[in-house]
Structure formats: structure tokens, C-alpha cells
């Protein structure tokens, strides 16, 4: 899915200086625990999260995440936006909650882009 379309679907707002027409998003993950994001997200996906600190951008850069959506109308600090511009990671904010954001994108066919956890978390 093109990032431009994704932004339209969730009525999002682009916070960084990016042109969204040619950015392809291959899947999504919704989570607030950065360790979980680092463990399981696949490259070229969008991270949907309620967390809103510079660590999220760092996590995205380290894990090759293509874009970040901040839900519930959260606006990151200017330093996070600057960092995202430097690292070329589009930041988007939406007033929707994580539940509706996930639901809408799932229904539009965006696949879950999280590797299923292995036996590590099993009892």
C-alpha cells in the first residue's frame, strides 16, 4: 500500500518533510512495547503506536521500519520530528485510536508484518 493512501485511510497528518507518493508500505504492526517491536517487526512496514518519544524513532531506524503512525492524536516533540527527517522516517499522526487504526488498515488488506514468535514466550 502506498503511504499516501494509508494516510488518507486513517485521516492522518504527515509531520515530516516527505513526499508520500512513492513510499510503499508492505505491512503493519501495532504495539507500544519497543522490545517487542525490535524482536518481531519485519523491514518495510509501518509501526502503529501510542508511544510518542524519540525512542520510537530510534527503534524504527534500527529495525528498518518504513514509517510510524502515532495514534490518539499524539504529537511528538520537535526533536523527534527532526530526528525522523534526518533518518528519513515519515511520521504520521491520527486522532483515531490504535484499535480503529489497526482495524481500518487490516480491512483494506494491509498484512500483519510481524514474525510469529517462536517458542520463547510459550509456557
Amino acid at each position: 500500500m502506498k503511504l499516501k493512501k494509508l494516510i488518507e485511510l486513517i485521516e492522518g497528518n504527515l509531520l515530516t518533510d516527505h513526499s508520500t507518493d512513492n513510499i510503499e508500505i508492505k505491512g503493519a504492526m501495532g504495539a507500544d512495547l519497543m522490545s517487542d517491536v525490535l524482536t518481531s517487526i519485519k523491514p518495510e512496514s509501518v509501526l502503529l503506536t501510542g508511544l510518542c518519544n524519540p525512542q520510537v524513532v530510534r527503534t524504527a531506524q534500527i529495525a528498518d521500519i518504513r514509517a510510524i503512525v502515532f495514534v490518539r492524536g499524539k504529537n511528538p516533540a520537535q526533536e523527534a520530528i527532526n530526528l525522523a527527517n534526518e533518518e528519513n522516517i515519515p511520521l504520521i499522526t491520527t486522532t483515531l485510536g490504535l484499535f480503529d487504526t489497526c482495524g481500518i488498515l487490516f480491512q483494506e488488506g494491509l498484512p500483519s508484518f510481524e514474525t510469529q514468535t517462536e517458542d520463547d514466550c510459550a509456557p
Binding site: 512495547l33 522490545s35 517491536v37
Partner: peptide
């Protein structure tokens, strides 16, 4: 609440 400390770091 900052998204860390879920006990997955070393495992990760």
C-alpha cells in the same frame, strides 16, 4: 510506560 522493561531485552 516508555515502552521498555517488558523483560524481553536479553531474550531479544
Amino acid at each position: 510506560e516508555m515502552g521498555f522493561g517488558a523483560g524481553m531485552g536479553l531474550v531479544n
